[in-house]
């Protein structure tokens, strides 16, 4: 799959480049290279679509390169990108530490680096747009406490937490935020397992095992919606009805929203995918021009984005949102796959 993806990436890249040189857009501001960690994840595929939708509106060509979850490949792509002298590089890192060399090189070459979704704290970059995975864990903990109270009369019960791949800091961040918050409720008992490689079958296996040894589980919290999908299949196969065991997951993928509509899933904590990208786009002109950014609160697609100056540079934090049966059809949730039509408002 990797070689195929690579080939496709190169092909698409070449085509885009030719397209870029060929069509002299009215407002040709150069190329933005988007470095993708992997495309084996719907959050990533939708991010790519959204970025390729938004930036051309502002006059930038987008060249997307998929690193297939390989940190070494992403560094090569950094080198290639630098050769193209793009207006900016948007980085969605495979590995936070490995990416540092690439970031240094690009910035030394005068190319601004914007970090999207996967926060890097250990080096200064030109802009960061994140939802805060730790924050997602915190929101999830709040939702879960609420659901346990609804179910058991007070925030108490047994929660099975299914992590993604234990080598992925995305899942570890969520875990950190979640566990720190849920610790406030001493009557919540937590069991934690990890689905290697974010592979759905592994999540199904875990759910099945745990329901045997801990049949009194009240709620299953999976770190991605597609894991909840597999868990739901197991519950159904065991003759359970929606709501017999509560389910919560995080990332807001389409399958999660569908499970909410069917009543299997009580809450989904979404990453504000569209807002994160609209946020990047809002600041891109200023960043490329090298103008200073003002800390403060900015309205991004109706969400309150808070821009602060951190050790790693300007940081735009966008709040994740809890999706429940009440608001599941809201088009701002990326899981509904309705790319917002509202134009990007560049920050003045």
């Amino acid at each position: 799959m990797n070689a195929y993806r690579k080939l496709l990436g190169v092909l698409v890249g070449t085509l885009l480049l030719f397209a870029g040189f060929g069509s002299a857009l009215a407002q040709d501001k150069g190329t933005v290279v988007y470095l993708i960690p992997t495309l084996l994840d719907e959050f990533q595929t939708e991010s790519q679509s959204a970025i390729e939708f938004v930036f051309p509106q502002l006059g930038y060509e987008v060249l997307s390169l998929d690193a297939q979850n390989r940190a070494d490949l992403q560094l090569n792509q950094f080198d290639d990108a630098i050769e193209l002298e793009p207006a900016a590089i948007i980085l969605n890192a495979v590995d936070f530490d490995a990416a540092i060399t690439g970031i240094e090189k690009a910035r030394a070459a005068g190319i601004p680096v914007l970090v999207y979704d996967r926060l890097i704290r250990s080096i200064e970059v030109d802009f960061t747009s994140v939802s805060g995975n730790v924050q997602i864990g915190v929101i999830a903990a709040g939702e879960i406490a609420r659901l346990l109270e609804e179910r058991n009369g007070s925030p108490q019960g047994k929660v099975l937490q299914i992590l993604g791949d234990p080598g992925d800091s995305y899942t570890l961040d969520i875990q950190q935020g979640f566990e720190a918050t849920i610790a406030q409720y001493p009557d919540v008992e937590l069991i934690t397992n990890a689905a290697l490689q974010w592979e759905a079958t592994n999540a199904a296996d875990i759910a099945e095992q745990q329901l045997l040894v801990n049949p009194d589980v009240d709620l299953i919290f999976s770190h991605a919606a597609h894991l909840s999908g597999a868990v739901q299949a197991v519950l159904e196969a065991q003759g359970k009805e929606p709501g017999d065991i509560y389910m919560v997951s995080s990332n807001g993928a389409p399958v999660g929203l569908s499970l909410i509509r069917e009543g299997w899933l009580q809450a989904e904590i979404e990453q504000p995918l569209y807002a994160q990208i609209w946020g990047l786009a809002a600041f891109i002109d200023k960043i490329v021009a090298g103008e200073p950014l003002e800390p403060g609160t900015y309205d991004v697609l109706g969400l309150d984005g808070v821009l602060t100056m951190e050790a790693w540079g300007p940081n735009l934090a966008l709040p994740g949102a809890a999706i429940t049966a009440d608001n599941v059809d809201d088009s701002r949730f990326w899981g509904n796959l309705q790319t917002p039509t509202s134009p990007v408002v560049p920050v003045e």
Binding site: L39, L40, D41, E42, L196, Q197, W198, E199, A200, T201, A204, H226, G229, A230, Q232, A233, E236, V255
Partner: peptide, 17 residues
């Protein structure tokens, strides 16, 4: 059988098997 087990299919289904 795997698609029945997980009630669908995800891009990385079965990876590592």
């Amino acid at each position: 059988l795997l698609s029945i087990r997980t009630n669908g299919a995800t891009p990385n289904l079965g990876s590592g098997m």
